[in-house]
Design a protein around this nucleic acid. Structure first.
Lengths: 229, 229
DNA sequence: GAAATAGTGTCTTTAAGACAGTATGTG
DNA sequence: CACATACTGTCTTAAAGACACTATTTC
């Protein structure tokens, strides 16, 4: 009988609000940035927040996440991955809301191209640490969105080590230097060049196009594309 | 405009049911087993299911998961970790229910000791694959619980490679052989003895007690405990 | 001594980091 | 030519797997 704490009476089941929030990350000027929208309504009116919507009664979670991106940022066809579910009772002061967070990584161009249609407001999130945790985004974020953002960055950095993330963020043909700079941006640190080259070339993911990068001040680099197979 | 599919009208926000389901894993006779309870009610009456409850209106998610274990299996003080959230519209035929899955790993003794009080019904899940995916548990599982179980096993196996999981499942003093057998049980495959010994001893997590395993038919092994620090 | 597991020592392979040195474009 | 980056080759280190061998208990 190790726990003699007072137990509350069995809670009665209740219908709760279910929301999705989307962390859309993008490499921008050498560091990671996240898409944020400015809230018009209370609570947290005027604050920055992750794009999110309430889930419809017959709507799949991932579809709701896609809808959030579409309606708040004008973006479609983004690969979304579930991140974590946040459900602390006080996280939304209005009513109990459980939020399923999703994350995605897209090239900045796509956000910029869609920018006109959406209500998106801010884009740069200076990222201090390396290990995750709440994030400072200049302005304070609404709700627990700083925690969500922190977890998202931690997750994407972890995935980069074993998953072929990032090819979708580069043009069809790219150099190993491009790829390394992208990885460094996502990871937020320099990585060893020799080891990176070896690892990428040994992965079998790359194939040389035969072409070279032109229009640069220095020795042109071999262009690669991601192998189809 | 890459996507010209018909878009449904914006769904109206709705209050949904939020549940938690708990995957309680335990090493048992050399393989992983999961705690399942037999459902009394429709739907899926008579089927095996993961212990779960609906989340109370003011109840944290993790607390609801602990309550599920307490009420359906008589277990308290279990370390729970959020696994994934399942929310496909058809997963519960009665009404739209989003389920936040949690997982835990405990020693079989604790389940057996609590067994009398709970309504627990089945305990052994023969585990076929290594990579996750839906699971056969002998009997068909209710709802999408086979998928949840599959993801849980995949996750615990992944974590074993870098996290000091498992010490809580052994008595305070144990041999390297005990620890290796535990890892092999969780992973579902044999692992290299030499490498395992080196890795464990080099991890700094272990310290020799000075004692030896007695009462065995063969050379007694050094006993270790997990280092406090 | 046989059986069974515990534990040690060494060799090979693999991957990462370090670093020297060469190659090739621009100014 | 200097400069900046691309690329190659080699050395070292660390960790994993393989394997041979020794050690210590019970029967």
């Amino acid at each position: 009988m190790p726990n003699k704490k007072h137990r509350p009476p069995e809670p009665r089941p209740a219908a709760l609000s279910v929301a999705v929030d989307v962390v859309l990350l993008t490499p921008r000027d050498g560091s990671l940035a996240a898409l944020l929208v400015r809230r018009g309504e209370e609570p947290f009116a005027g604050c920055l927040a992750l794009p999110g919507v309430l889930v419809g009664g017959d709507e799949p979670l991932e579809e709701a996440a896609a809808r959030a991106l579409r309606s708040k940022a004008g973006l479609s066809d983004v690969y979304l991955e579930q991140l974590y579910t946040f459900g602390a009772p006080g996280r939304d002061p209005r009513s109990r809301t459980v939020s399923v967070a999703y994350m995605a990584l897209v090239a900045f161009d796509r956000i910029a191209a869609a920018g006109a249609t959406g209500a998106l407001a801010a884009l740069t999130v200076p990222w201090p640490g390396e290990t995750g945790g709440p994030v400072e985004a200049g302005a304070p974020l609404a709700f627990d969105h700083a925690d969500i953002l922190g977890l998202a960055v931690k997750r994407i950095r972890g995935k980069l080590e074993y998953a072929p993330i990032g090819y979708a963020l580069l043009p069809p043909e790219f150099t190993l230097g491009d790829l390394q700079r992208l990885h460094e941006t996502v990871l937020g640190r320099k990585i060893n060049k020799d080891s990176f080259r070896r690892r990428m070339l040994a992965s079998g993911e790359l194939e040389a196009t035969g072409g070279q990068r032109t229009g640069v001040d220095y020795r042109p680099a071999t262009l690669y594309r991601r192998r189809k197979e």
